[in-house]
Structure formats: C-alpha cells, structure tokens
C-alpha cells in the first residue's frame, strides 16, 4: 500500500525511490493500478460482446430449429459438462486466493495457487479433448462436415448448425483457456522471482480478472449447451 503521497511540486518527474514499478506519468501507485484496471475492464466488456454475439446467434438458431437443437443437445454428455464446470469454478477460487496471496506478500502461496489454477485449466482442456474426439468420431461436426446418421429429421441442416455453434463457442472459449494458461504461467514465473508485493501486483490482479471472465462465460455456456433439452 505504498500510497506515499507524492508531492508533484517537489518531484515533477516522479523519481519515486519507494517503488521501481512506479511509472513517472502516474501520481501515485494507486492511480497507476486503477488506470490499468479500467483498461482491463474495457477489454473484458469487449469480450462480453464478442461472446454475446455468438450467444444471440445461438438463441436465434435455437428458435429456428427447435426440434433439431433439442435432439442435438442429447449428444452432449451432461456429467462431463458438470465436471468441467466444477473444475473451472474451483480454478477461479484458487485464482482469487492467488491474488490475495500476492497482495499479502505470500510469494510461495501465490505460486502454488497459480500452479493449481494451471492444473485445473489443463484438466478442463483434457475433458474437452475427450468430448471433441467423441463428437468427431460420431460425425457430429459443423456445416457440411456433419455426417452423423440416425437423426429424426432427414434434413440435417439444423443439426449441423447446432454443432457449428457448439464448436465455435466452446472452441473460442477453449482458446481463451489456452491464452489463460500462458498468462498464468507468465505471472507464476514472475511471482516466483519475487516481483510482486503488496504495493505492486497489478499483473496478478488483471490476469485474475481475465480468468474469472473465462469462468463467467462458461457459467452460461454450460446450461445452454449441456442442460437445456
């Protein structure tokens, strides 16, 4: 909390010996942190809109092909979806504990919590791999790659549309998980070097926000894909 009230009159170029992370164009560390955070929230708002567009499209196609979508839902395994939800919620908790550890100068705990978060992310992707390979084997694929047989409705257009959305949305979410693993690794390495402390932990906090958003999106993806039928 080094809120050393910097006097700009006497220190116009911000030579703040208290913290090497303090950039000269910010008055205080607190202002610097808040600025970064607003930027992160703006990015998260665009993420909401990015996924939002896909959710709206999914809703429209669900209204257009209700029978096909209902039947296609049955191909998704509810227990696997539920397992992934639990894994991701747990990883969100380890993430927030990591941020708390960084803020309270507990370097070792920070690294441990981040490692558990990464492990959860890998479990999530492992389950997804299992699900994807099952879909690919059965020919439950997007667009004209859809080759599944034995559906009730002869025209497979609706089913193919469902799986286009399924792979697009869970795939985009999966890419976010992959990016998240990279970011978590990056702050774990920096944290291990002891770069974060109670007065500077901005990267940990912002990666935490990103990770929670990825969790938040899954909170909606899970019921929409796995539970509604």
């Amino acid at each position: 909390m080094s809120t050393s009230t910097v006097d700009l009159q006497h220190d116009p170029h911000g030579e703040h010996p208290d913290d090497p992370h303090h950039q000269h164009h910010f008055t205080t560390m607190e202002q610097q942190f808040d600025t970064s955070k607003i930027g992160m929230w703006l990015f998260l708002a665009t993420e909401v809109l990015l996924f939002g567009g896909l959710f709206v499209g999914f809703g429209m196609m669900q209204a257009r092909f209700p029978e096909e979508f209902k039947e296609a839902h049955e191909h998704l395994q509810r227990p696997l979806g539920a397992l992934n939800t639990v894994v991701l919620l747990f990883s969100s908790w380890t993430m927030v504990m990591g941020v708390l550890s960084a803020r309270t100068n507990q370097r070792k705990k920070l690294v441990i919590y981040l490692m558990i978060t990464i492990l959860c992310a890998c479990i999530f992707l492992g389950v997804k791999y299992f699900e994807y390979s099952h879909k690919i084997e059965e020919g439950l694929l997007p667009g004209h790659y859809y080759t599944h047989h034995g559906d009730k409705i002869p025209n497979t257009h609706g089913y193919a549309t469902f799986f286009s959305f399924y792979f697009m949305m869970t795939g985009l979410h999966g890419i976010h998980i992959l990016v998240g693993i990279g970011l978590l690794w990056w702050i774990a390495v920096r944290g291990n070097r002891g770069e974060f402390n109670s007065s500077y932990y901005t990267p940990v906090d912002l990666v935490g926000l990103y990770w929670h958003l990825v969790d938040l999106i899954w909170i909606y993806l899970f019921p929409l894909y796995y539970l509604i039928s």
Binding site: D34, K37, I38, W41, L42, L44, A45, T46, V48, L49, G52, G53, F55, V56, G59, S92, W93, M95, V96, G208, L209, H212, L213, D215
Partner: peptide, 27 residues
Amino acid sequence: IFMHLLHDKPVNGLIAAAGFVFLGLFL
C-alpha cells in the same frame, strides 16, 4: 466477489454493466 466489483471503484462496475446493457439491447 471474485472480480472484486463489490468493493471496487464504481467505474469498473459501470463498464462491466455497460457491456451487458449493450448485449441486452442487441438481444
């Protein structure tokens, strides 16, 4: 709670809410 909006500066919550409001309009 996890994203700290409860005790955070209101501007962050406002940005988050704006994202969802515009998504609502779109929908």
